[in-house]
Design a protein around this nucleic acid. Structure first.
Lengths: 350, 350
DNA sequence: ATTTCGATTTATAACGATATAAATGCCGTG
DNA sequence: CACGGCATTTATATCGTTATAAATCGAAAT
């Protein structure tokens, strides 16, 4: 083998300095700091953890060196040793793909996690598997230190499972289980009640509401708020059959178009979702009904969308980013503290 | 020390079975399988990796036992040992909070990652730090095996940095750097061209377009497509000053309302975003201009939103979930293969 | 019978951090 | 001057996995 050949082979064996290690110097570890300071790795570790048994002067010197060389602890090593993942899992339901719901939540959550060592992992929940599966998987295999999920049900299996195992979590919406659990909710009772009162005050004589699917707790809250208002005022009412806020918006529009063509047409509509509210408007438009005169609508607003909609629609605002922020904060608090904190918070209708 | 005392102490030492270890049996590891099969840990590891040097019969037996006890490899340990994180980072720009953009991307990405060991981590990019910071951080500290980002610029610092370090990534949109790099883009030239042709064909005599901020490559594409069409047809045109697709939608509406009140009012509008398109509609409405008669609008549609909008608006569809799916697939391919694959794909206007 | 070979399996050493227990050195005290 | 006590530092083991090198074993070859 010639000299050139050997050189050639050498080049092949080490192509171009392992990916990502540009600059020539390897990633700093505790060992690097230990060598630079002349201390033991253990000491460096505890110094960075601000352990009181390490001399103050040592702690400061270690901190100094650490920041100079841009040391960051290896997450994998920490996770392996301590069992803590520094991960928060957001379990996303396929239905949350609609519009801004998930994005607002994510915005709030990342804001809450900002400055902490926690990362946000999106765990999709595919519709062909039971709702509790991703949660169980995360918990069993310790994929995260805490779980965030939404669309809570009255007797939610996920809440039960997580409570049983004392695993940190927070959910958007409440259960109707006896036991207290951490959650953040919006006052959907208040929403529906207020919406109905507004419509009645505007002169509506027959109210119509599209509810979330019955299996969600907040569907009950909305129904209850709606029923309370219509009973107080003694006006006629109707609750959408066959379609829910989760239905395809085309289906909602078709359904409403049919209903608007039948006898005893409702004149006041309540809609707890933005796109479905547009479906209501479209159905009315297709019937040449004038919004704000022939029919009225109160919609729940979760984005700036309805500020651009004409004719103007009365809305009641739910701040999902704020909910996400709050959820993140409460979850971090729960993870930090050893015993379960059963803090709950309901964001009021504005 | 009495016997009771010792027992008491023993109990204290193991308080209540570490959180999450319900059921009494600890989380299975390679060691567990090794003990059950009588093999060495190394052998089990290689058997599960389907190494050819392990006897077929052994491999099958190990697989069997592994699935029986529900073994899952510890990600932290794998990550520590191999340096691979099994994480894909999606860097989210604050502007992507609007409506469905991020959600659609996430949907596509999770679909692509389904069945793979990869997790999706959301890395927020806060607006008070340089755009390249989160990308550099992820790369330097090996927080992920691959990066996804959006809003690509002609001379994008992120692309440069990642290319220099040969770090796997994919972006939504192209650069104008000479070097090829992996990306998925939408044919925004085609969008603007087609939109302009449609408006002209419908009889419009003065076209108006709202572009993305100039710093993004796709702004140039749209401008180019728009300019080509108006020049071909020789119609008058105007490009929005002062507002872009990133502007507050209220600002866009106010701006357009003013413009529509001035002389030589445009009669054909092109809008590359959903909410801003609604702003155009709102401005026209507030001027009592009839859409489809006094003024026309072609909007880019990225969700089902415009199917519910009345009066009906002409739209051109961009499938962001499809883009996300494609990006995920290309990135995984890039991570799998040792040498950079410079695959690029432009999704065509439909 | 000894050697060699190929096919398997195994032992050992890391990856980078931290918990536990042990060691060091300095101080005052008896 | 030996000792105990205190403050501080260090050595060792470990988390669960995989890369590397070494070992085992039966069968074929010398």
């Amino acid at each position: 083998m010639s000299l050139e050949d050997m050189e050639e082979k050498g080049r092949r064996a080490m192509p171009e300095r392992e990916t990502g290690r540009a600059g020539g110097n390897a990633k700093p570890t505790l060992k690097t700091i230990a060598e630079l300071t002349g201390l033991a790795v253990t000491t460096v570790s505890r110094a960075l953890a601000d352990a009181p048994q390490i001399a103050l002067e040592t702690r400061q010197r270690v901190r100094q060196v650490a920041s100079e060389i841009g040391y960051l602890p290896d997450r994998a090593a920490q996770r392996l040793r301590t069992g803590r993942t520094n991960v928060i899992s957001l379990v996303l339901d396929p239905h949350e793909e609609i519009l801004s719901y998930a994005t607002s939540m994510i915005k709030g959550l990342t804001e809450a996690l900002r400055g902490t060592p926690y990362h946000l992992v999106i765990t999709p929940h595919f519709s062909d598997t039971p709702q509790v599966d991703p949660v169980r998987h995360i918990m069993r295999n310790r994929m995260a230190d805490g779980i965030v999920f939404t669309r809570t049900e009255p007797s939610d299996e996920r809440v039960k499972l997580l409570m049983e195992n004392n695993f940190p979590f927070i959910c958007h919406g409440r259960t109707e289980l006896g036991t207290a659990h951490p959650y953040v909710d919006y006052d959907n009772y208040g929403f529906a009640y207020l919406a109905a009162r507004k419509l009645i005050a505007a002169g509506c004589r027959k109210l119509f509401i599209i509810l979330p699917p019955e299996r969600f707790t907040f569907a009950h809250h909305m129904r209850h708020g709606f029923m309370t208002a219509v009973r107080e005022e003694g006006v006629a009412f109707e609750i959408a059959m066959d379609v829910t806020l989760d239905s395809e918006s085309d289906d909602i529009r078709d359904y409403l178009f049919r209903r608007m063509g039948e006898a005893e047409r409702p004149d006041g509509f309540i809609c707890g979702g933005e796109v479905s509210a547009l479906s209501v408007m479209a159905a009315a438009y297709d019937h040449h009904l004038e919004l704000g005169k022939d029919v009225r609508l109160v919609a729940k607003q979760t984005s700036g969308l309805f500020d651009q909609i004409r004719p103007r629609v009365e809305t009641i605002y739910e701040d999902l980013a704020e909910a996400g922020l709050l959820m993140g904060r409460l979850l971090l608090k729960r993870i930090g503290g050893p015993q379960p904190i059963d803090e709950m918070q309901v964001l009021q209708t504005v």
